[in-house]
Amino acid sequence: MTQTETLAHEPRTFEQLIAAGERIEPRDAMPDAYRATLIRQIAQHAHSEIIGMQPEGDWLTRAPSLRRKAVLLAKVQDEAGHGLYLYCAAETLGADRADLTANLIEGRQKYSSIFNYPTLSYADVGVIGWLVDGAAICNQVPLCRSSYGPYGRAMIRVCKEESFHQRQGYELLVTMMAGTREQQEMVQDAVNRWWWPALMMFGPPDTDSPNTAQSMAWGIKRHTNDELRQRFVDMSVPQAHALGVTLPDPDLCWDERRGSHDFGQPDWSELARVIKGDGPCNAERLARRRAAHENGAWVREAATAFAARQRQAVVA
């Protein structure tokens, strides 16, 4: 009997697949809670990509060289592409893109709180690439091994592109640090503003993260928030040193015994406030997404009507 026949006659259960470290595919049986958790996680990831176009998108029309304009536009375009893949991955679980978009603009689903901070200078474009995309990669590379097949496969491409984003950000900062004193000050100022929000991207401390244990058991999440945060800090410190900037944490120091850096805690009450909707740009970000969606409704309706007419014409 071939392996295919075995699979056809004796489908392995969800629990067996998870225990064997294999992937769950869209037509496999899965617990309702697993499906719901994944839809929520993938949708929030997709929303983050789409809202995440805005902070840097604000600098597209003002990018200071033709090359930087092209690089930034390509990057922001990638984010739209990531949003698309991820909404598609969520659709394999039975979700609908239009419903998910409605959940976002009506505030029923969240997106990454980092995008509720403003971008105040062109150095922010570089620091977002370096630190925010860097933190996103730390979060997302383990998701390439997500137990849910379509999500894991989407994440492989997303992570490759995020890696480019991070590098273009770092390269911009290296270039600016070789520029005028004003440019160097812009870079340091941007690092000061983005460092703590970047640390918050890994979520609350493990002691305050109620969903982590279940998500890890299901293979949806591979590392705890604090493990990823530590990894991010350890990787960022030598980068900051090479760049010639200071990270704004007086408690940051190397712990020889642990072989890791000790570091201060972000203001967790600020994260709670921003998640609740009270960050500097929450209202603005959602309003722009809502306006784009509503202003585009007539276009989508026209495309739907046109497609229906084409189908009728084919049938006739």
Binding site: I50, M53, Q54, G57, L60, T61, K69, A70, L73, A74, V76, Q77, A80, G81, G83, L84, Y87, R288, R289, A291, A292, N295, G296, A297, V299, R300
Partner: peptide, 22 residues
């Protein structure tokens, strides 16, 4: 065309308009 970024009627158009601008 760049001014359409984040304002396009659908995500596919975000990608396409950015492509043309690039």
């Amino acid at each position: 065309l760049t001014q359409w970024t984040t304002c396009a009627p659908e995500l596919e158009e975000e990608v396409a308009l950015a492509n043309i601008a690039l």
